[in-house]
Design a protein around this nucleic acid. Structure first.
Lengths: 204, 204, 204, 204
DNA sequence: TATGAATGAGCATTCATTCAT
DNA sequence: AATGAATGAATGCTCATTCAT
C-alpha cells in the first residue's frame, strides 16, 4: 500500500519537474532527457512511470485542472449569481503571480497545438472530455440561473456552446495577438459579460 | 536565353502538391523531400521558389483565401441580408466536393497548430492579419445591417469579436470532437444564427 | 583579336569581383552564385571563363602577384643593399590602405588552407611554383649581396630556404595569434633582419 | 546498475578510428557517419563522447602530443647538448613505421588547414597554445645551452621564434613539394642545424 | 555568347526509446 | 526499482555544375 503511494508521488514529482520546461520551451521541444535531469532521475526511470511524453502532459494537465477546480470551489459563495460564478471560473484565481499564469497560458496553447495535429487520438480524447467539463459547468450554471430567475433564456445549449467556443477561440487569439495572460483574461470576461447580458433579466 | 517557364505557375504547382501532404501528415511532419517528390521536382528546386517551408504554407493559404473570397463574392446578391451574407461567407461554397472541404479543414487545423507553437513570429503575424480580415468583414456586415435597419445593436465591436472567436473555437472543437467538415459548418451556421438572432429586429 | 582582349577583360572582371568575397567569407564559403551576382553576370557565364572555383583563385592570385612584382620593382633603387631589397619585397608596398592589406592576408591564409588539403594537385602545383619564385628571388639577392661584399656567407641555399620557410610560417602564426597585417609584416621584417645580421659584413 | 564501460577507453577508440579518415580525406571532408561506422558504433554514440567534430580533432591531437612528449623524454639523456635535444624533439622517434609517420604529417597539415580558415576560434585557440609549447621548449633549450656555454647568443627570443616558424613553414613546404615524412624531417634537421651553427661556440 | 532553371548529393545533430546490468 | 549507454532514424538547406534555350 505504502509502495503505491510512493509510486504516485514519484510520478507526480516527475510531472511537476516537466511543467516549467514545457511552458518555457514547448512540449515538442522538451526532451525526455531534460525532464529526467530536472526531476533528478535517470532517463530510463521516466519510462517506468510514463509510457511516453504525452502521458506526462496529461498528468500535468490533470494536476492543473484539479487545482483549478479546488481554487474555484473555495472562491465562490452561495450568494453569487450564476454570471458571477461563470466569470469567477475563468478568473483562474489559483495563480498568485503573473509569471505562473503566463506559463500556464503557454502550456495550454501548446496543449491545444498538440491536440490539433494529434493522430493517435490520445490528445483528442483527452481534450474532448476537457471540453465537456467546461460545457457541463456552464450549462449547469445557466440552468441554475434560469431556475432562480436570473436569466431569461430558451436555448441554454446553444449559449453554453457559444461560451465554450469563445474560450477556445480566446486562447488562439491570445497567441495570434501576443496577449499577456491578464489581457486574455480581461478579454474573456468582457466577452462572457457581453454574451450573458442579452439574457439577463432587467429586474429593477 | 533562359528556359521559358511560368515561374508563378510552377510555384503554384509546388504549393498545390504540398497541400495533400500537409493535410495528411501535418506541416511539421512533412519533409521538403516529400514535397519535392510529390511535385515532381528536385529538392533544390523547391528552394528556388520558396525560401523555406513556412513560405509554402503561406502561399497555400493565400491561394485558399483568394479562392474563398472570389467564390463568396460571386455567390452573394444585392438582396441578401447582412446575416445571410455572413452565413454565406462561412458556407465555403468554393468546395464542390466533400473530400476537398475535409482536407482544407485539416489544413486549417494544422495551420492553427503551427501558429500556436510558433516562435519565429512568422505564423503569428500571418495569422493575426488573417484574423483581422475576418473581423473587418463581420463588423462591416454588421455595420451595414445596422444602417439598413436589419440589426438593433450598440456594441458591434464585441459582437464581431464574439463571432470571430466562435469561428476559431469551432475549428478547435471540430478536431476535438472529430467533426466532419459539413458538421463543423452546420455548427458554425447554427452558432452565428443564434448569436445574431438577439440583435435582429422583429419586423413583422 | 579584339574578341580575345574582351574575353581576357571579362575573365579579369569576374576574378576581381571574387576577391572581396573570398577575403571576407573564405574561398570555400563563397558560392559561384555570389561571384556571378557580384560580377553582374549569370551563374552559367562564370563557367564559360573558368572551369571551376579553383581557377578563379589562381587567376586572382596571378593578378596579386603581378601587381606585387610591379610595385616592388618600382620601389627599389640601384643603391639599395640586398638586405634592403629583401625587406622591401616583403613590405607589400602595393597596398595603400589597411583594409586591403588585411584582406590579402586573409586571402593568402585561405589559399594556404586550400593547398594543405588539396587532393587534385592543382593548388599544390600552383603553390610550389609560387614557393620557387620566392626562393629564387631571395637566393639571387643573397648571391648579389655576397658578390658585392655585403654578405659573408657560404650556404646561400640553406639561408634562402630558411627565409622562405619563415615567411610561410609567419602567415600561419598570423592566423594563430590573430595578428593584423601590419603586425605580421613587422614580425617578418624583424625575423629577416635577425637572420641576415649574422651574415652581414661589419665594414666600418 | 548501468552498463559497465570504460568511458575514457571508448572515447579514445572513437578518436583513433577517426585518425585514418581525417588523414585520407581531410577533417572537413570526413562525416560523423563515417567516423561512427569506422569506430563500430552508431552515429548518436559519437555525440555521447564528443560535443562536436572539433572535439574529436582536439582529442586526437592531445593524444599525439602526449605520446610525442613521452617518447621524447625517454629518448634524451643528460649528456645530450641543447642542440641535440632540439633536433631529437623533431625526430618524432615515437613513430616506428613509415606509414604512421606519413599519416601524422598529413593530419598535421589538415589540422593546420582547418585552423587557417577557422571562424569559431576553437582551432585558432588550440593551435596557439600548441605554438606556445613549441616556443617554450625551444627557448628553454636555448637558455640552458647558453647557460652551459654551448651557445653564444643574445637574442634567444628571436632565434626561438625563427625555429618555430621554420617548423610551421616546413609543414607547408612538405605539402607544396609533396615531401614524404622522412624528407620533411631531414629538411627540418638541416634547417635547425644551420640556424644553430652560427650561435654555437667554436670550442676547439 | 549568355542565361538561369534544374539538379540531387551531402551532413551535423537531436532524441525517443530500449535494454543490459 | 533504477540506471544510463547505445541506438539510428529523420531533416532542412546549400551549392557546384549542367544544359536547354
Amino acid at each position: 500500500m505504502a509502495r503505491i503511494i510512493d509510486k504516485e508521488e514519484k510520478k507526480c514529482s516527475i510531472a511537476k519537474a516537466s511543467i516549467d520546461l514545457f511552458c518555457e520551451k514547448g512540449i515538442q521541444q522538451t526532451s525526455i532527457e531534460e525532464i529526467a535531469k530536472s526531476a533528478g532521475v535517470a532517463k530510463g526511470t521516466v519510462y517506468l512511470y510514463f509510457k511516453n511524453k504525452e502521458e506526462i502532459v496529461f498528468a500535468i494537465w490533470d494536476m492543473i485542472v484539479e487545482r483549478h477546480i479546488k481554487a474555484f470551489e473555495s472562491s465562490i459563495t452561495p450568494s453569487m449569481s450564476a454570471k458571477e460564478k461563470i466569470i469567477q471560473f475563468y478568473k483562474f484565481s489559483e495563480f498568485d503571480n503573473k509569471d505562473e499564469s503566463e506559463k500556464i497560458l503557454h502550456l495550454y496553447q501548446h496543449f491545444l497545438s498538440s491536440m490539433l495535429v494529434d493522430n493517435s487520438g490520445l490528445f483528442t480524447a483527452y481534450f474532448e472530455s476537457f471540453f465537456k467539463v467546461d460545457y457541463d459547468f456552464i450549462s449547469n450554471c445557466l440552468e441554475e440561473g434560469k431556475r432562480l430567475g436570473e436569466f431569461e433564456i430558451d436555448d441554454i445549449h446553444n449559449l453554453a456552446n457559444t461560451i465554450v467556443l469563445v474560450l477556445k477561440g480566446a486562447a488562439v487569439k491570445a497567441k495570434a495577438s501576443n496577449l499577456h495572460f491578464n489581457e486574455a483574461q480581461a478579454f474573456i470576461t468582457e466577452q462572457i459579460s457581453f454574451l450573458l447580458e442579452n439574457f439577463t433579466r432587467n429586474e429593477r
